[in-house]
């Protein structure tokens, strides 16, 4: 498993303008970590989806962004943490088209497709932590070429 480089950057998610801050921080760090444009865009989009979930379903929380190093090079780990009601059925929530907030139901399931690693820890009434990892070079990462 990868190891975090330094203390994560913590961005609060309390209102919808905070989503802009999350996107900007993730993009800036992805650029500095050597992400290509498409890989950057996918991660920033996933972060935007997940941060909105934190706001709408978790009642607010924070994003924690850190640079990680795996066997195939650097990447970014972004966790979205809230102390909301939790996700009762994670498998159902991850299916395409499932929505409780009147959205398109693509946020959670779609963002999973945009990153290389995706984990949800959710406790009923104890909050949710969604962690995604995206590698700067996902192709060599997938094939173990580096």
């Amino acid at each position: 498993m990868s190891q975090a480089e330094r203390e994560p950057i913590r961005v609060p998610i309390r209102k919808d303008t905070d989503l802009t801050a999350v996107r900007q921080h993730v993009r800036a760090l992805a650029q500095r970590t050597g992400f290509g444009l498409v890989q950057q865009t996918k991660l920033v989009t996933a972060a935007s989806e997940l941060a909105r979930n934190t706001l709408l379903h978790g009642g607010g929380g924070a994003a924690e962004i850190s640079v990680v190093h795996g066997s195939t090079g650097p990447g970014l780990s972004v966790s979205f943490v809230d102390s909301g009601p939790g996700i009762p059925d994670v498998e159902l929530a991850l299916s395409d088209g499932y929505s409780t907030a009147g959205g398109l139901g693509m946020g959670l399931s779609g963002s999973k497709r945009l990153v290389q690693e995706f984990a949800i820890e959710s406790v009923p009434d104890g909050g949710t932590r969604v962690t995604v990892i995206s590698w700067a070079d996902p192709y060599s990462a997938r094939q173990g070429l580096r």
Binding site: T45, L104, G110
Partner: peptide, 14 residues
Amino acid sequence: MRPSVAITLVELGL
């Protein structure tokens, strides 16, 4: 639309 946005939207399912 930028190409990177198009790729991401398709992968997102939109």
